[in-house]
Simulated assay, not measured.
Amino acid sequence: MEVRHSVHPEDVKRLTTEELRERFLIQGLFKPDEIKMVYSHVDRMITGSACPIKPLALEVGKGLGVEYFLERRELGVINVGGAGVVKVDGVEYALNTTDGLYVGKGSKEITFSSNDAGKPAKFYFNSAPAHTTYPTAKIERQSITPAHLGSIQSSNERNIYKYIHPQGVKSCQLVMGMTALEPGNMWNSMPCHTHDRRMEVYFYFNLPEDAAVFHLMGEPSQTRHIVMSNEEAVISPSWSIHSGVATSCYTFIWGMAGENQTFDDMDHVAMKNLK
Rank of each mutant, 00 (worst) to 15 (best):
N156R: 09
N96L: 10
A130V: 04
P135S: 04
F112M: 03
Y161P: 01
F112R: 03
G106A: 05
T133H: 09
Q142I: 14
G184E: 10
P146V: 08
K170N: 11
T133N: 08
T133R: 12
E140C: 08
T97D: 06
K162P: 00
A180C: 02
M178N: 08
P146I: 09
T179H: 02
C172N: 14
I160R: 09
A121C: 01
T98F: 15
K105F: 02
A94N: 10
Y161C: 01
G177I: 04
S114Y: 08
S171I: 05
L174D: 09
A147Y: 00
K170T: 12
T98G: 00
E92T: 02
Y161A: 01
N156E: 06
Q167V: 01
R141G: 00
V175A: 10
W187Q: 03
H193C: 09
L181Y: 11
A137C: 12
I164C: 07
G177S: 10
K108W: 06
S155W: 13
Y163E: 02
F112E: 04
K122F: 06
N115R: 12
H131G: 01
Q173Y: 12
N96Y: 05
D99F: 05
M186P: 00
E182R: 06
M178T: 08
P146C: 05
A94G: 03
F112H: 05
Q167L: 05
N159L: 03
Q153K: 14
P183Y: 15
M176N: 10
A137N: 12
Q153R: 13
A180F: 00
A137R: 15
L149Y: 15
H193V: 08
T132H: 04
R158F: 10
H148S: 13
D99Q: 11
C172A: 09
M176A: 07
P135Q: 03
K170E: 13
A147S: 13
P191K: 12
D116L: 06
I160N: 12
P166C: 06
E182T: 07
Y102T: 04
D116C: 05
I110G: 07
E92V: 00
Q167K: 10
V175Y: 02
I152F: 03
D99V: 05
Y163P: 00
N96W: 01
N126H: 13
G184Y: 14
P183V: 07
V103M: 08
S127F: 01
T136D: 04
G150W: 13
T179F: 02
V169C: 13
A94C: 04
P129N: 02
Q153C: 00
K170S: 08
A121M: 01
P183H: 14
L174Q: 09
L174E: 08
H193T: 06
A121H: 01
T179I: 11
H165I: 01
H193M: 11
A180H: 02
F112S: 03
P183N: 10
N126M: 09
M176F: 14
